[in-house]
Amino acid sequence: MKNTAFIAAILATAGVIVAGTAHAQQGGFGKHGPKVSFEELDTDSNGEVTKTEMEAHRDARFAKADTNGDGKLTLDEMQAQARKKAEARSANMLKEFDKNGDNALSQDEMPKPRRAGKMFTHMDADGSGGISAEEFAEAKSRMGQKRGWMKGKGKDCSSN
C-alpha cells in the first residue's frame, strides 16, 4: 500500500512538472528560460543569425545574471536568476489558467499533462495496472540513459 501511494505521489508530481513545463514552453519559456525570437537574435536584421550573434546573446544573458560583474556566476546569482524565471513562469501560468479570476489555481484549472497517462502505461510494462519496483527502476534507468544520450548530443552539436 505504501508503494502504491509513493508511486501515485511521484506520478502526480511528475504531472504537475510536465504541465508546468508544457505551459512554460507554450507561454514563451523554454527549458533554460525565455524563448528568444529570430528577430532578437538577428541583431543586424539581415535575415540570418550568425554564430557571433548567438554568442553575443549568450554573453548578454550571462552578464545579466552576473550582477557583480566579476565574470563568474555565484550560487546566489544563479539562484536569483532562477527565482526571476520561476516568478515570471508562475505569473504567466496564473494569468493563462485562472479561469475564475480568483488569483489562484484550483485543481480543475491546472493544465492537464499531455503525457501523464501514457507515461504510466509505458512504465507499467506488464500491463498489470500498477508499477512494480522493477518496472519503476527500469523506467528510471531508461530516462537516465536518454538524458545521457541527449547530453552527449548537446556536446556534439555545440562543438560544430
Rank of each mutant, 00 (worst) to 15 (best):
K140N: 08
G130R: 14
S128P: 00
F136H: 01
A116K: 11
A133E: 13
I131G: 00
S128M: 02
A137H: 05
K112S: 14
M110D: 00
E138P: 03
R114W: 03
R114D: 07
P113I: 03
R114T: 13
E138T: 09
A133Y: 13
I131F: 00
D124R: 02
E135F: 04
F120N: 03
D108R: 06
G127E: 04
A116N: 10
D126S: 02
F120S: 07
A116R: 12
G117K: 10
E138A: 14
E138C: 06
G130D: 14
S128A: 08
S128C: 04
M123D: 08
A139Q: 06
K118P: 07
I131A: 01
R115L: 13
D124Q: 02
A139L: 01
F120M: 06
K140G: 10
A137G: 08
M110Y: 04
E135T: 06
M110Q: 11
G129C: 07
G127Q: 04
D124T: 04
A133L: 15
P111F: 01
T121S: 11
P111Q: 01
D126Q: 05
G117H: 04
A137D: 11
K112E: 15
A133T: 13
A116S: 15
K118W: 14
E135Q: 06
E135H: 06
A116L: 13
A116T: 06
S132T: 14
G117L: 05
E138K: 15
G117P: 06
A137S: 09
F136V: 00
K140H: 14
D124H: 03
E134F: 02
P111E: 00
A125G: 09
A125T: 09
A137K: 14
R114Y: 06
S132Q: 04
A137I: 12
A133K: 12
E109I: 14
G117N: 12
R115W: 13
G117F: 02
G129S: 04
A125S: 08
T121A: 15
R114P: 09
P113W: 00
A125N: 06
M119D: 11
H122F: 15
E135V: 03
R115Y: 15
K140L: 12
G130A: 15
A125Y: 01
M123V: 08
D108A: 15
D108G: 10
G129V: 00
F120P: 03
G130W: 05
P113M: 02
G129N: 05
A139C: 05
E135A: 07
T121P: 04
M119W: 08
A139M: 07
D108Q: 13
G117W: 05
E135C: 07
I131K: 01
K118L: 13
T121V: 12
G130H: 09
